[in-house]
């Protein structure tokens, strides 16, 4: 076998092992997180509501403006694109359907998750990574305090509460954006547009969107914390981990979306 081929196989093998090792670590972290989130509180080991609320403010409240603004713009874009296409058939009323369905099912959950990855997933990795590098996490451990309980659980829980909430808001604002542009540019009445929107949506649309967003939250917070906890090597390590956290999260979010869409909507 040629030298390059050996090299390539070696590289693939190493990457594979690395990936397997990381998945095992993530699994262990997940197990510990669920223990401290769901089991330990009922065994009298306490629960850090204060930190959960702190994180909820950071993730939910402080992200509200940017999430709303982007959702609004996307609503405008989708409505304009749909109307342009539908005009040819004289069916501009279906702009309402297209906008509502695409936002509730896909764009709301997906865009919100991606914005929050960039805004909060990266911040989680940077914060925890910096604490790792400056030995703060070790200090916590030597006090007999579990880092997962104090750092990971509040972030995961806050993310799982706030991301679906943000998604609902993004859905509403996005649909409102579509409504606004339709009122301004199309020859439709307000009542008809609203009726059309409501009739287009089913409970399943909302349910699938919010389920997805719950899983996206798990991905963002889980990967964010894991990448932060495994930081090695100073400030440079924190920077690299932050980048990796965002890239890995976004990749996993989209991959999960493919899976969910197949489960909920594939027609085979």
């Amino acid at each position: 076998m040629s030298k390059t081929a050996t090299k390539i196989f070696g590289q693939v093998g190493r990457r594979g092992l690395e990936l397997a090792g990381q998945s095992r670590e993530v699994g262990r972290l997940a197990r510990e997180t669920f223990y401290w989130m769901l089991i330990a509180p009922f065994r009298g080991k306490g629960f850090k509501w204060k930190y959960v609320v702190e994180q909820m403010v950071k993730i939910g409240y402080e992200s509200l403006p940017i999430v709303s603004l982007i959702a609004f713009f996307v609503g405008l874009i989708i409505a304009m694109q749909s109307a342009y296409q539908l005009k040819a058939f004289g069916a501009t009323i279906y702009t309402a359907n297209l906008t509502a369905v695409s936002i509730i099912r896909e764009l709301g959950p997906l865009l919100t998750a991606i914005i929050i990855t960039g805004r909060n997933g990266s911040a989680i990795t940077a914060e925890i990574g910096t604490m790792r590098v400056s030995e703060e996490i070790d200090a916590l451990a030597t006090m007999g305090l579990n880092p997962v309980k104090f750092l990971v659980v509040p972030r995961v829980l806050a993310m799982m509460i706030m991301l679906p909430c943000l998604t609902v808001i993004a859905d509403l604002v996005g649909i409102f954006g579509g409504y606004l542009i339709s009122m301004l540019t199309l020859d439709l009445t307000s009542v008809r547009y609203v009726d059309q929107t409501i009739s287009a949506l089913t409970f399943k649309d909302l349910f699938s969107g919010l389920t997805k967003s719950g899983f996206f939250a798990l991905i963002i917070a889980g990967i964010g914390c894991h990448q932060g906890l495994i930081v090695r090597g100073g400030a440079e390590g924190v920077g690299k981990a932050t980048t990796r956290s965002v890239v890995v999260s976004i990749f996993l979010i989209i991959a999960a979306d493919v899976l969910f869409t197949t489960l909920f909507y594939a027609s085979f």
Binding site: T130, E135, A139, T142, M143
Partner: peptide, 22 residues
């Protein structure tokens, strides 16, 4: 884990880098 926590409550550590919570 519980026995460890019990032991470490009675131990103090000053790190070389101080390791204060920033």
């Amino acid at each position: 884990e519980d026995a460890r926590v019990a032991i470490f409550r009675k131990i103090g550590m000053l790190f070389q880098s101080a390791a204060l919570f920033n």
